[in-house]
Every structure is written in C-alpha cells, then in structure tokens.
Design a protein around this nucleic acid. Structure first.
Lengths: 341, 341
DNA sequence: TTGTAAGCGTTATCAA
DNA sequence: TTGATAACGCTTACAA
C-alpha cells in the first residue's frame, strides 16, 4: 500500500495551501490561472484523486445514490429493470456519482429497510418499478429525496413512460387497420401504468368513433404476466363477443394471449390482431413477432437518475437550482409494427 | 431535516464520553454491563445510526465493495449474473456492507476504469464473469483486494463452479445411458470454465473406456452463444461421423445445437442426446427440456462476496484472520436430467 | 487571489 | 473501565 496521496501532498508539491488545491479540484472560487495550472500539474503528477469519504464528511454529501427495486423484478428473465439500472449507472458515472443497488422484497416491512435509509449513506434514491407502498411511506419519512422510475404515486416526483401517447399510437394503428371492435387486456388494475394505458386507449378509440365495449376491458387484481395473459385472454376469446383486436397492457400479457390464440387455432393477425407494450426481448421473437410500443429502458434510467441528481446533489458553481416540489417527466414511446397486427 | 443524531448526542444522553459510545457500538473493548445498556438505551431512544462516512474516514475502510461485470453480460436476457449479483448483495447486507455495481465494456481500456479504482471508495471488488485482461491488470496494480466469480486467472483468488465435477456427472450419465461415442461442443476455447468442462469430460469418458474422438471435440475462439451452438452443431451433425450424444459447454450452446438438430429432422434424444451446463431459465422450457448441470447462481455470488469480505474487511474482535495468498473456492453442481438425454 | 483554521462524525491511542 | 484527544482528508467561511 503506497501511502495514499492526499490533498496535503499536492499542496506541498504545488507550493500552495490545501484550500487552494481544494478550490482548484472543485472548480470553485477565483484562482489565478498560473496557480491553477501549477496545482493541476502537481495533482496529475502525483496521481491524486480526492477521497470520496473525506469529501463526503466535509461536504455533508456522500456522492452516492441508491437504486431500489423489488427483488423479483430484478430476478426475472426479462432484463427490463436491469436496463433501466444500466441507464442510471451510466448517467451516474457521467456525473461522478456512485449507485448503490439494493432490493426490497415483494412484501415490505420495516425490517427490510435498506440500510442506507438510516445510515444516510446515499444522497437520494431512485425507486424503479412498483414497490410496496409501505416502503414508499418509510422512504417519505426518511426525508431523503427520491424519484420513482416507471411507477407513480400521488405527488411523488417520477419519470414515466408516456403511457397515454403510446396507447394513442396503438389506437390509431388499429383504427387504421380497420378495427372497430378492439379490446383491452390489462390484468392488474391497480398498476398506474396499466391503468393509464387502458384509459388512454379507451378514450382514443372512443374519440375515433369506435367505443370499446365494457366487456372488452379485461382487468383483475393479479400480476400482469404471461400466465395472466393466457388466462384472461382465454376468457376474452371464448366470450360471446370475441374481439378482432386486443391491446394488451404489456408484452407479457400479449405473449400469453398469443398462447391462448394458438391453443384455439386462431390465426394472428387475420383472426385476431394483438398489440403489446414495452418491446421486451421476447416480443420480436414471438410467433408471430409482436407489434408493440417501444420503450427505451436505458433512457428511463438515465433520466430518472438525472432528475434525482438535480434534486439531491445540487453541485456546480453556476447552478441555478430549481426544484419544483413534484414533477413528472415523460419518456417518449413509439410504435413498432410487426406481424401480429 | 431534523438534525442528524450523532455520537455526541448519544454520549450526552447516556452521560458518558463519545469513546465509550463508540466502543459499545462496535462491541469492542471492555465496557461495564451497566454502561453498555445505558448507552444502548440512549442510542435507540434517539434513533442513532453511526455515519458510514465518518466511520469510513476514521477507520480507513469504506464498508463498500464493488461488483464489476461486463456490460453485455449484465444486459443479456438470461439473468445469470443478475442472480449472482443478488446473492452477493444478500451476503453484503448480512455483513452490513454495501455493494457498488459498475460495468465495464467488452473491450476495456484505461479510460473506462471504474472510478472506484482510483477514488478508493470501495474496500475490495468482486469481478463477475469473464472480463478483459487489461482490466484485471489494472485492478491488480490498484492494490485493491479482489475475487473473481465464475472466472479464473493465474493466481487470482476465485470462486468457481465445480466444472470438473459437473462434467464428470455428465459423462457418467451418458455412459449409463449407453453412449460410447459422445462429443463435446465448447466454442470459445480460451474460456477457462469451458476448457475445464471439456477436459474433465474427455478424461471421464476416457476413464470409462469411451475415449472421445478428436473430431468430436469442437471448439473455436468465438463467443459461446446460441448462434455458435447452431453453427458448430451443424458442423458436428453434418460431419462424417455423427455423434449420438453431445455435451455442450453451456446451455446457450446446447439450445443452439437443439436448433440445428431440429432443422435436420433429428429426434432428441433418440437420434441425439444433448446435455448442457448452467441450467438457465430457458433450459427447462426448451423443446425438448434440456438435461443440464445446475449451478446455483445466488450461491456463487454469496460465496464470492464472503470470500472477498474476509480479505477486504477483516472485522470483529475475535477475528483470527487467515488470508491464503490465493484460493479457489468451488461451488457444487448437480445434474438435472430432463428429456433431452 | 490565497491562506488560516474550524469543523464533519467517527475510530483509536493513551492516560487516568 | 472510562475519557481526553489526536487523527482521518476534505470543504468552507473568514481573514489577510
């Protein structure tokens, strides 16, 4: 262990005080150009990197941000949140921040509180996807700034997919294809994103003069996964008034519906048009390839981390900071038309 | 922001000095039972949690460990490393440590160095999966303790799947099924795990009296993915001496081989027995379901983090530390027999 | 424009 | 068994 190079070493090398070094390293204050470059040179020659820890202690900021998601969301094979994380980590790196990743169980209780809630070892937290409300309550009480990514809740700042826009694109697409009797398959009615997609879709169809029948809006209170898609899809396909087109709240549901259609010998898209949402990896590989709404997962993470950083780590000399008490940022979506519609 | 509770507050409450509080909080030194409980009470009443940052500065340890993997490994849809990470995070939590996750690109160069290499913001690093050798070199130079998980390199401490044991299980299984002319399909011959599986398999078969023909050992220097499995598999199936059983270096290759067999109208397992390694999610869902060697990914992460923590964060009053300069820990495997063999 | 010095919240050394 | 007190490496008033 070659003794760590500290600010003092640099100061000595450059023949200045440590505060000057600090100013230079942070681009703050007014330092004479000559001094600045002398310090820079000394720093690089010595291979000096400021200690995060010391900096954190002195400045009252850790430079760490937390990224929290539900354990099962992270474990699932569709790398949705993994990619959101990757985007967040990328943005964090750009900003010189670190990301501490922690998972919370599906059913949260206080004993599962990520340690950094109490240890103040992060400056803020990105919460990705749906999590237990109790966790969000605890988070709120902690006073730490946070941002929800791909989830929403009352007044909490969040970064979300443009669900409404995406749903409207789907409606327009189906109408253009001549569909007048479309259905919505959404499972979990408590999920804000699914709910938003549903109502925007229903509204768009109605606006186009093709109101969606009540019986054609299929939701429940369970998970919105492939199994649910197959189950609820079966219900829809076996019903008295089979729709000719179905917009599914997400790709998993759509894949399940495709399973159900196949079981019944229905041809997609001639007997039934199917559209999903998310553009997961499996969408393009489905049989037939799934028409869906594309969401850029990395961008979601990048933006979420950016929004959080603005709130939690207000840095920089110029920095005219604005923190609207609550904001919702939308990530644009677009429609990927494949063979299923 | 209700001013953070510090050690001073607790000391005041309990009527002792801060050093005593520190001793109590760390379970160190000899503190009278009465004093101890008085401090404990004060601490919980005030809701005191020691500051990680301050602790880090004073103790010269951050309490953070880094987890590094290749970006593409993390992004891929098979959640292999995601699960390794989950195991690591779990173990870290048990030990009161945090995990900083960072990715490195496939082709590493110094400009991609994770910041924590220079900023000393972690006490050690888990490197998961294969990474660019240059990165490992840089890591070595940094002097930070590290452990490789699911990868190996000269003398570096590592935690690995018991490749030899797994391969031997496969050989025994095939022999038991009456196979005398088995092949090995391994792609990337530079990958230590694949190489180990290959040689152990060949040795086991030979020991059983069924030597594997040289032409039946198929490797190259490319990625060991599904595409490679299909391509190299085609080569094997179209060759002059088609094997009746193939052990693939991993499930992705096996899935690709299954594709190639299907294309050729070969029935698995009657025409061709196929065995993989890893037991990825897709293995059980393949057609036919794949016989494979199961690896517990979470355990791999847990153990790797544990090994690292022992080296990097030697704590505890008792602590008789032993750090064998280099160690290799193996994670047991077992065979899951499904329909493909 | 630069330097002095007071913290930041701990741990650890030594006396008491 | 406990308590002063000096680090730890840095930021940030405030002085010069």
């Amino acid at each position: 262990m070659p003794d760590r190079v500290t600010i003092t070493d640099v100061a000595a090398q450059a023949g200045v005080s440590i505060s000057t070094v600090s100013l230079v390293m942070n681009g703050k204050g007014a330092v004479a150009e000559a001094t600045r470059s002398r310090v820079q040179t000394a720093a690089t020659r010595l291979g000096y990197t400021p200690s995060r820890t010391a900096r954190g202690l002195a400045a009252g900021r850790t430079g760490n941000l937390g990224f929290v998601l539900r354990e099962d969301h992270f474990r699932q094979s569709e790398p949705f949140y993994t990619r959101v994380f990757l985007g967040a980590e990328f943005e964090a790196r750009r900003r010189g921040l670190y990301v501490l990743l922690a998972t919370v169980p599906e059913r949260y209780d206080a004993s599962h509180a990520p340690r950094f809630l109490s240890e103040h070892s992060v400056d803020g937290i990105v919460v990705a996807g749906r999590v237990d409300g109790d966790f969000l309550d605890a988070l709120g009480r902690s006073g730490l700034p946070y941002v929800l990514a791909d989830y929403a809740r009352d007044g909490a700042p969040s970064v979300q997919v443009d669900n409404e826009g995406g749903a409207a694109l789907v409606a327009a697409h189906l109408v253009e294809r001549g569909h007048t009797r479309a259905a919505f398959l959404g499972a979990d009615r408590d999920h804000p994103s699914l709910a938003a997609r549903c109502s925007a879709f229903v509204a768009s169809m109605a606006a186009a003069g093709h109101a969606v029948a009540d019986a054609h809006v299929v939701t429940d209170d369970g998970a919105a996964d492939r199994t649910a898609g197959a189950r609820l899809g079966a219900h829809l396909l076996d019903g008295p008034d089979r729709p000719r087109a179905v917009f599914c709240g997400n790709d998993a549901l759509a894949l399940g519906l495709l399973d159900a259609a196949r079981d019944r010998g229905l041809d997609v898209p001639s007997d039934l048009a199917v559209v999903g949402f998310d553009d997961v990896e499996g969408a393009a590989l489905a049989a037939p390839p799934l028409t869906t709404v594309r969401v850029c997962k990395e961008q979601l993470g990048e933006v979420a981390l950016g929004v959080l950083a603005e709130r939690a780590v207000p840095v920089g000399p110029v920095a005219a900071r604005f923190d609207r008490a609550s904001s919702v940022t939308q990530i644009a979506t677009d429609l990927v038309v494949r063979a299923s519609s």
